[in-house]
Computed example of a mutant assay.
Amino acid sequence: MAAALRKILTFGSMLLPYGVHELRRRHKQRSQISESVLQALHANRELAGRHKGQRCFILGNGPSAKAQDLTVLAGETVISVSNGYLHADFQRFVPKYHVVPQITFGTMTEDQVERWFVEMHENLGEAELFLNETEAGIVAERKLFAGRKVHYVALRTNFDDISDTSIIDIGKPIPRVDSVPVLALMIAMHMGFKDIALLGVDHDSWRTGYYQYAFDLKVQAGMDFSVTSDGKILSPNYDTFQSLARLWRQYRRLRMIAVANGVRIINAGIGGELDEFERIPLDLLLSQDKVRQI
Rank of each mutant, 00 (worst) to 15 (best):
68 Q>Y: 04
69 D>R: 09
69 D>F: 07
82 S>P: 10
82 S>R: 11
85 Y>I: 08
86 L>G: 09
86 L>D: 10
89 D>Q: 13
90 F>H: 10
90 F>C: 06
92 R>P: 12
92 R>N: 14
93 F>E: 02
93 F>G: 02
93 F>C: 04
94 V>T: 15
94 V>F: 13
94 V>K: 15
95 P>W: 04
99 V>E: 02
100 V>S: 12
103 I>L: 11
107 T>K: 13
108 M>P: 11
108 M>G: 11
110 E>G: 11
111 D>F: 10
113 V>L: 11
115 R>N: 12
115 R>G: 10
116 W>P: 04
116 W>F: 14
118 V>R: 09
119 E>C: 03
119 E>G: 01
120 M>I: 03
120 M>A: 11
122 E>W: 13
126 E>I: 11
127 A>V: 01
127 A>K: 00
129 L>I: 10
131 L>H: 06
133 E>Q: 14
134 T>K: 01
136 A>V: 05
137 G>H: 08
138 I>L: 04
140 A>H: 10
142 R>D: 01
143 K>R: 14
144 L>Y: 06
146 A>H: 13
146 A>S: 15
147 G>S: 10
149 K>W: 10
152 Y>A: 03
153 V>L: 00
154 A>W: 10
154 A>Q: 14
157 T>K: 01
158 N>H: 15
159 F>H: 04
159 F>E: 03
162 I>E: 10
163 S>Y: 12
163 S>M: 14
165 T>K: 14
166 S>C: 13
166 S>E: 15
167 I>M: 09
168 I>L: 12
171 G>F: 03
172 K>S: 12
173 P>I: 02
175 P>R: 01
175 P>Q: 03
175 P>C: 04
175 P>W: 01
178 D>K: 15
178 D>Y: 14
183 L>F: 09
183 L>W: 08
184 A>E: 07
185 L>M: 07
190 H>C: 00
193 F>D: 07
193 F>C: 04
197 A>F: 08
199 L>S: 03
199 L>K: 02
201 V>H: 03
201 V>F: 04
202 D>A: 13
203 H>P: 08
203 H>W: 09
208 T>I: 07
208 T>K: 06
213 Y>H: 14
215 F>G: 03
216 D>T: 12
216 D>Y: 12
